[in-house]
Amino acid sequence: MGRSAAVILAAGKGTRMGSQVHKQYLTLLGRPMLYYAIKAFEASTIDDIILVTGQGETGYCKKEIVDRYCFTKVSAVCEGGKERYHSVYEGLKAASDCEYVLIHDGARPCITSEVIEGALKGAMKYKACVVGMPVKDTIKISDEDDYAEMTPDRNRLWQIQTPQAFEYELVYNAYKKLLSSEAFQEGITDDAMVVETMTREKVKLIRGDYTNIKVTTPEDMEIAGVLLNRIYTGK
């Protein structure tokens, strides 16, 4: 098995959280939210962790999170860029000594080692894969005036999560091409989309976990607290 790395993104500002503190540093069960994502990857078979922070936050993350909680797999802490794809690219450059790479949002604290291992195996088997879950609700596509225009087949819809896992050279070259021209960058929302549009490689969908939520609002913080308590205490 080739060497593997995880790029954990912690450069977002979390404006919808309504807090002066960036959401990845908000406290959940007595510890920063970002702690839980790092902890899950630390406990997995991933070899290295690359932490991508906001501008001017690398020192804080090293001291208050990496050193404070004795994370030994964090091999680099680097600053992100203006957009998510800029931050991912910085993380990929720092993770160059690997064959497989998993990209994860630090705002998903409820990730488990089981989901991580599944994503890593998926990258080895399919070259490109993302974790997600089939949607539970009926989805409507609206027109410009918010009238229902179309109802897609729910059986073919997935809600996409992270980590998203790839052969390193595949995703690195896809991002390098993306950043070569602003014309490529419009509408890019995740790593799978970069690979889908910049290469001919198909991206496999594999099952993650409904508990692997992204924390975006104060209500999500409450839900994440309950889920983390269940994950780490079984209650």
Results as ranks from 00 to 15, higher is better:
Asn173Phe: 03
Gln24Ala: 03
Glu186Val: 13
Thr53Trp: 03
Ala165His: 05
Tyr126Glu: 08
Leu9Cys: 07
Leu120Lys: 12
Ala76Pro: 00
Phe71Ser: 06
Tyr210Val: 14
Ile50Ser: 12
Arg200Phe: 13
Ala174Asp: 07
Asp105Arg: 09
Thr189Asp: 02
Glu219Phe: 05
Asp67Ser: 10
Ile160Glu: 03
Glu182Arg: 13
Glu167Tyr: 04
Asn229Cys: 05
Arg156Glu: 12
Glu64Cys: 05
Met124Arg: 11
Gly12Phe: 06
Glu144Gln: 11
Gly56Tyr: 11
Tyr147Met: 04
Gln159Pro: 00
Thr216Cys: 01
Val226Met: 14
Ala224Gln: 02
His104Gly: 03
Pro32Gly: 03
Ala174Ile: 11
Val77Ser: 11
His22Asn: 10
Lys202Asp: 14
Cys129Glu: 05
Asn173Arg: 15
Met193Ser: 08
Thr197Gln: 14
Ala94Pro: 02
Thr189Met: 09
Glu99Gly: 04
Val194Gly: 06
Thr58Ile: 10
Thr58Ala: 10
Leu28Arg: 00
Met133Ile: 13
Met33Gln: 11
Arg84Phe: 09
Leu34Lys: 03
Val130Ala: 12
Ile116Pro: 02
Gly81Lys: 04
Glu219Pro: 00
Val66Ala: 03
Gly234Gln: 09
Glu186Lys: 14
Lys13Tyr: 13
Leu179Gly: 06
Glu64Ala: 07
Lys140Ser: 12
Arg207Asn: 14
Ser87Leu: 08
Cys61Asn: 13
Met124Thr: 00
Lys214Pro: 00
Tyr35Arg: 01
Gly12Ser: 15
Ile141Val: 15
Ala128Ile: 04
Gly12Lys: 02
Lys82Val: 15
Ile103Phe: 05
Thr112Glu: 03
Ala94Met: 07
Leu51Phe: 08
Ser44Gln: 06
Ser4Pro: 00
Tyr36Ser: 06
Glu90Tyr: 12
Thr189His: 09
Ala6Ser: 11
Gly132Trp: 10
Glu114Tyr: 01
Asp146Ser: 10
Ile111Ser: 00
Asp145Met: 02
Arg108Asp: 02
Met124Ile: 07
Met198Leu: 13
Asp220Tyr: 07
Asp191Leu: 01
Tyr126Trp: 15
Ser113Val: 15
Met193Asp: 09
Tyr89Thr: 06
Glu83Cys: 08
Glu196Asn: 11
Leu92Tyr: 04
Lys136Thr: 14
Ala119Leu: 09
Ala37Tyr: 03
Pro218Thr: 12
Tyr126Gly: 05
Gly56Leu: 12
Ile160Val: 15
Val88Arg: 05
Val131Gln: 01
Pro163Val: 07
Ala94Leu: 08
Leu205Gly: 00
Lys177Thr: 10
Lys125Tyr: 06
Glu114Arg: 07
Ser4Asp: 04
Asp190Gln: 02
Pro218Lys: 08
Thr53Val: 13
Thr45Trp: 01
Lys127His: 14
Lys177Val: 00
Asn212Tyr: 07
Glu90Asn: 15
Ile111Asn: 01
Thr217Ala: 02
Cys110Arg: 02
Arg156Ala: 05
Thr58Asp: 03
Ser75Glu: 10
Gly208Ala: 12
Ile50Trp: 14
Pro109Trp: 06
Pro163Gln: 08
Ala107Met: 12
Thr162Ala: 09
Asn212Val: 11
Ala128Val: 08
Leu178Phe: 05
Met1Gln: 07
Val21Phe: 01
